[in-house]
Design a protein around this nucleic acid. Sequence first.
DNA 1: TAAAATATTTAGGTATACCTTAATTATAGC
DNA 2: GCTATAATTAAGGTATACCTAAATATTTTA
Lengths: 224, 224
Amino acid sequence: MTEQAATPATEEYLAVIYRLSRQAEPVPLALLAEQLGISPISANEMVRKLARAEMVTYRPYEGVTLTEAGRQRAEVMVRRHRLWERLLTDVLGLPWDAVHAEAGRLEHATSDLLERHLAQYLEQPSTCPHGNPIPGQPQRLEGARALSSLATGERGRVLAVVNEDAALLRALGQAGLVPGAELEVVAAEPALGSLAVRVGDRHVALALAAAAQIMVGAPEGQGS
Amino acid sequence: MTEQAATPATEEYLAVIYRLSRQAEPVPLALLAEQLGISPISANEMVRKLARAEMVTYRPYEGVTLTEAGRQRAEVMVRRHRLWERLLTDVLGLPWDAVHAEAGRLEHATSDLLERHLAQYLEQPSTCPHGNPIPGQPQRLEGARALSSLATGERGRVLAVVNEDAALLRALGQAGLVPGAELEVVAAEPALGSLAVRVGDRHVALALAAAAQIMVGAPEGQGS
DNA sequence: TAAAATATTTAGGTATACCTTAATTATAGC
DNA sequence: GCTATAATTAAGGTATACCTAAATATTTTA
Ligand SMILES: [Mn+2]
Ligand SMILES: [Mn+2]
Ligand SMILES: [Mn+2]
Ligand SMILES: [Mn+2]
């Protein structure tokens, strides 16, 4: 009986590992613990339990990697999470900086049946309101780059905000830096850790750390 | 520190006690335990904990009653539950016999903010899809009676199905016995434990136990 | 390459919410 | 009024998911 824990806690671990895997693979335990808001010791315990259940592989001093079974389970959770975000913003009108936390709870209370109805009602969306991909839908193949990597004068269009921290999203929303926005880098000052960007007719200055969370693609009318 | 447990488990107890209070007040422990699907001993433990937290009063051999604080908390949960049921049926198109179970999970993952947006989007509905009242909305004052109490020849309109058991709802749905349906009692046979009813042009026979779960009001065009 | 700094593991503990078995009630039927 | 029945409480146990403190192991860096 190595199987089927499927408690909210294990679901949460798998989904967080999945998300962090984009940035670092395998995922260091310290990062995982920090994201989950628990002690590294507790994270270590749980990760070893997940390894026993063959949802992850764990290499001490290196980190955690999802197994195929773990990845599938994680994708289900992330899919439900992002479908909920779409419903909450597009239909119920919640602000985009609030829906990540709400969906983070609803995802664990969602059956297969409900997931199907959600996806159907929303017409199989391919991204969440923050531009991040919904697993199970065809992804537009993107030559996406972090905004922080653009040089002065380069233009692009916002595709996604990777980090869905509420404070960051609120600030970006006010600056007009939302998926679809066209922008141009006015001045890149890596040495100063800062970036000046024109968004429409507005000028915005942001830290490199913030810019690193924004994925941009080719500007309108320019194929990859 | 007698305060604020607010775990899903305590929320669940309060909501179930609230619902059962319509039928029996105080609520016998045996009934509560059965509804929650746990042993009477565990129910006893939890109820004494709730009593310590002043959410209920508990009189051994009699039963449980909600305190004012408990009633308020319970009404929040029942309100969220029934708002979800409305969204799931009216918007997402889930079958009416499935939504009680779904809402039973979602209710615990619902914030004040989300509750407000749900209610607003649904235009402050006053009942769930099964006809049961949504706390916090004005209730139409109803001279409702159980269908099982009607005599032969009496007519009425279905207001609500009190017991939201999936199998019962599925059967009632197929028989057309849904809120709003006009009906006439064709033959009441209390001795046989059965009732024959005409619903539209259809004839339906049902057990008294089932009929007891159906609340009816005055037929169309007849004020109370 | 030997400390120093980090990371991991062990050990022991807490809280929640269940369980079973056994003892102790209280209620109700006769 | 007594006793059978049923309800309650006590006692002890399980599993999950956290925690802290202390011991060990590994990696880094000087
Ligand atoms: Mn979550
Ligand atoms: Mn998102
Ligand atoms: Mn519930
Ligand atoms: Mn209902």
